[in-house]
């Protein structure tokens, strides 16, 4: 049996599928507990339902993007392992980089033609080890860290600043990415050459414009359902614009 056939064999599906199934079960348990706790402390069922529908509708498009990562990696690693990695713990931007780095360390290029059984199991181990730290930190420090964050406000009122701090952090996160898209276009092929890839920046602008329009309509007409799907709609529009822009540029 060829190595890629072995890597996509029923045994591989069984090993990887069992882990995916376990994580799916964990998600179900957490969701049910959160729902019940929400109701028990008097949260409105309609609000909880909105959280579920908006999160589900929002997640479909990025999930399709992640599926592309599975396709991209399947040529070298078979289907089950990338499927597992991108369903559990992995991140789209991380997997390819680490897989390539790991392949280099075992003396091959990341491709199906060069893959061997030994190289694969080493690459798989490295991919797991490199990304486990977030989970390890959670295992040992989550309770201490969240308890510390939840301490009551002192004289400075720092706890009541928590919400603003989180919004600010998120703005910082978005700003870092927006700055990188601007840099990609203006200095992507050398400082201030304006010849880099402009598609990500244009996609940002298109998605933002769509968000502005959808928000305006939703607020004006008081359409809660439209608000719930505004992010998914704006992303879809931005991604459609990316296709058109790529053809024009």
């Amino acid at each position: 049996m060829e190595i890629l056939d072995q890597l996509s064999s029923p045994t591989m599906y069984l090993i990887c599928g069992a882990i995916v199934f376990f994580v799916a079960a964990v998600c179900v348990v957490f969701a049910v507990r959160a729902w019940r706790a929400g109701k028990a402390i008097g949260m409105d069922t309609a609000v909880l339902r909105r959280v579920v529908t908006s999160s589900a509708s929002f997640s479909v498009l990025p999930a399709v993007g992640i599926l592309l990562g599975v396709v991209a990696l399947s040529g070298a690693l078979g289907i089950p392992w990338p499927w597992l990695r991108l369903s559990v713990i992995g991140a789209l931007h991380y997997e390819t980089q680490v897989a390539e780095g790991a392949a280099e360390q075992v003396g091959i290029h990341l491709s199906g033609s060069e893959m061997t059984a030994g190289a694969f199991s080493t690459i798989a181990l490295l991919m797991s080890v490199c990304i486990m730290w977030g989970m390890l930190l959670n295992l040992f420090l989550n309770k201490k860290y969240t308890n510390r964050l939840a301490r009551p406000a002192g004289k400075s009122g720092i706890a009541s600043f928590g919400d603003e701090a989180m919004t600010a952090m998120f703005i910082g996160l978005v700003s870092a990415y927006l700055g990188s898209y601007l840099g990609q276009w203006i200095s992507g092929n050398g400082r201030f050459t304006f010849s880099g890839n402009a598609v990500p920046l244009c996609t940002v602008l298109c998605a933002a414009a769509m968000m502005a329009l959808v928000t305006f309509i939703a607020e004006r007409r008081r359409l809660k359902w439209l608000e719930d799907v505004s992010l998914a709609l704006s992303m879809l529009f931005g991604m459609t614009c990316a296709v058109l822009l790529q053809r024009l540029m």
């Binding site: 498009l61 990025p62 399709v64 993007g65 592309l68 919004t167 998120f170 703005i171 978005v174 990415y177 927006l178 898209y181 598609v199 990500p200 920046l201 996609t203 940002v204 602008l205 298109c206 998605a207 933002a208 414009a209 769509m210 968000m211 502005a212 928000t215 505004s230 992010l231 704006s234 992303m235 879809l236 529009f237 931005g238 991604m239 459609t240 990316a242 296709v243 822009l245 790529q246 053809r247």
Partner: peptide, 21 residues
């Protein structure tokens, strides 16, 4: 043809969120 759409999921996401925030 569809490749740019999937390559730009994150910019589309952050564009929409940037407006909101």
């Amino acid at each position: 043809t569809l490749r740019p759409a999937f390559d730009n999921v994150v910019p589309a996401l952050f564009g929409a969120l940037a407006y909101k925030y």
